[in-house]
Amino acid sequence: MNRLLLNKIILVLSTLSAVIGIGFLFWILGTLSYKGISSIHWSTFANDLVEGGIRNLLVGQFTMALLASALAVPLGMMAGIYLREYGHGSKLASLIRNLSDIMMSAPSIVIGVFVFALFVDPFGGYNGYAGIIALAIMMIPIIISTTDNMLALVPKELREAGIALGGSKHKIILQIVIKAAKVGITTGVLLSFARIIGETAPLLFTSANNQFFTMDLSGQFPSLTVSIYNLATYPDSASRELAWAASFILTMIVLCINLIGRYAIRNKK
């Protein structure tokens, strides 16, 4: 009977772990909603940080994440195309694929330090461009790996059909292969966007933060996440409330983009 008992214990413990995992999700989302929603007022969206709102922070965070994507998506996709369509099987391609995989898990604070050394220190101060570059460096490996994996799923026959029609290699890639992998790549782009929009560490000493509304990327640039870090440590309750409101909005944005990404995949399959 002993082994049956052991079996039961393990099964109960496993189920318990799943309950604990989900418990934490609801606990975090619950407190976040409770604290966040009660702290959100109309002025939260209408004012800039200097007046106790997050308008400039939201605009700043999105501006940097979008511009980082504008940099990372074409570069990452082209690199993925090279790995799968041109260099596939070569030593160089597999080296690059491995290095890019490692970059995907590199500590984000180290990327911040790297960008600080190259794009902040020599230019005399924090600037929005540096923040964008740091976010793009985080995003590129994710886009490379998604593109590479999604192109691998495109059947060889599609490419052969393109060749039979007399298409040149780059036309086949652009007009047939990429189109076939469109949904998967879009999902990857959405998920990586969701990841970088919530990043704090690479921005701390690259774009830093700005209390005022600005679109000038050559100076300190407003950031939602960096502001949360600052606000949460201030002793006054107004700052803390604003930090909760900002955290709630950030989490909702990230989770919504994630769910949209997953939904896109499921519809296709």
């Binding site: 995992g21 999700l25 975090i28 969701a194 560490a201 949360i228 989770l255």
Partner: peptide, 23 residues
């Protein structure tokens, strides 16, 4: 359950920090 666990992975780390500090 799988989706819930994966959403847990998507929450930005600063949120974990803030929640952890206050709760």
């Amino acid at each position: 359950v799988s989706i819930a666990i994966e959403l847990l992975a998507a929450i930005p780390s600063i949120i974990y920090g803030m929640w952890g500090l206050f709760y």
